[in-house]
Write a protein that binds this DNA or RNA. Sequence first.
DNA 1: CAAAAAGATTGAGTTCGTTCATTTTTGAAG
DNA 2: CTTCAAAAATGAACGAACTCAATCTTTTTG
Lengths: 204, 204
Amino acid sequence: MTGLRERQKADRTGRILDAALRLFRAQGYDAVRIEDIAAAAEVSAGTCYNYFSTKGDLLLAIVSMEVEEVVGAGRAVVEAPPPDVELALRRLIRLYYDHSLNYLSKEMWRKAMAFSIEAPGTPFSQRYTELDAMLVAQVSALIAALQKRRLARPDLKPGVVGQIVFNTLNQMFIEFVKAESMQLADLHRMNDAQTASLAALLRG
Amino acid sequence: MTGLRERQKADRTGRILDAALRLFRAQGYDAVRIEDIAAAAEVSAGTCYNYFSTKGDLLLAIVSMEVEEVVGAGRAVVEAPPPDVELALRRLIRLYYDHSLNYLSKEMWRKAMAFSIEAPGTPFSQRYTELDAMLVAQVSALIAALQKRRLARPDLKPGVVGQIVFNTLNQMFIEFVKAESMQLADLHRMNDAQTASLAALLRG
DNA sequence: CAAAAAGATTGAGTTCGTTCATTTTTGAAG
DNA sequence: CTTCAAAAATGAACGAACTCAATCTTTTTG
């Protein structure tokens, strides 16, 4: 089942991803050439293109892993939500934001988001879009959980509200990564303000 | 005041913009080389870079003109809003959407939005961001006008609601330009549905 | 086990955005 | 009208993403 070819393939994929992440973080996305990644991964430039269709798609593969992690971390919040709409939303969104710079730089986020709009058809662009949908679903699930606990107006459709909340948090995140000087603390403040407004709408 | 140099400069800027718009529409953004634009505008490639910092910024200059037009057209709706929240929002947003493909292709929008995230510091990227803010302000002004006419809950801050509405319409537009097969009619349907939900929240 | 087929790797070559030293044009001063 | 400085245009040269024909490695077949 796991032939040599298969193992080598997985190994090379891992080496390319590791090298790319390390170099992107250290030198910045633009400054790193595919040849540099190839050299660090001990393959040729051409081989990188057998595994990832473009440099942008390779970046999105890395970013997608980060988003997968955050979706995993978010489950805990949805399963045991704080006993208040505002607190609950704030907590989930802070989790997303705080995770965002663990492995990735603002430049990497900018390039990744740009690429996912520019080239929506590549494999990891589609994956990234799926993951965004999973985040929407997760926020929606949180709303639903709060409604079940009678902490939010029961007449609002969780999916609609979830999408609205996601749009807002996503837009603020874009603003954040676009402004190199903006700090996480600033983003938190924006989030707290917006969440307060939204929470007012969502409470009975 | 209008020396030769000044006139030539304006003339060249115009020729480059015209040529770029025509070629981007006819052949697609990626297929058009800076040299092609330069040739059509009867200048050299290097000259294009005296006027626009990158190919992406040249595109954003074109897209910005389109957005300026749409902001102008939107004023009429804000000044004489239809007598219902849902109708009013729907009308303004449809105006935005219907204008969007007058001069620009989906590919151009994708590239433009991508570039504005990727390179937020270039002159026309900043201009584009300003124009987005103007659209937010315009939607907010519409909400305020409706409140004044007692057609919307008076306790909601127009700015907050305007930003939420804009985020939603913008997100749907991104989905639209990402899916080459999606038609304007589909976008209208999405808009009608979302607007109905939002209008329910905004009515007294 | 040998031979052939299938699958991957390779790196030299192509393309295109961008830069920059040089040349040309414009406007001002004498 | 001539001279000079500043501004602008030019296109050759550069660099990096990406392609592809040739080569090598793994798997399958007889």
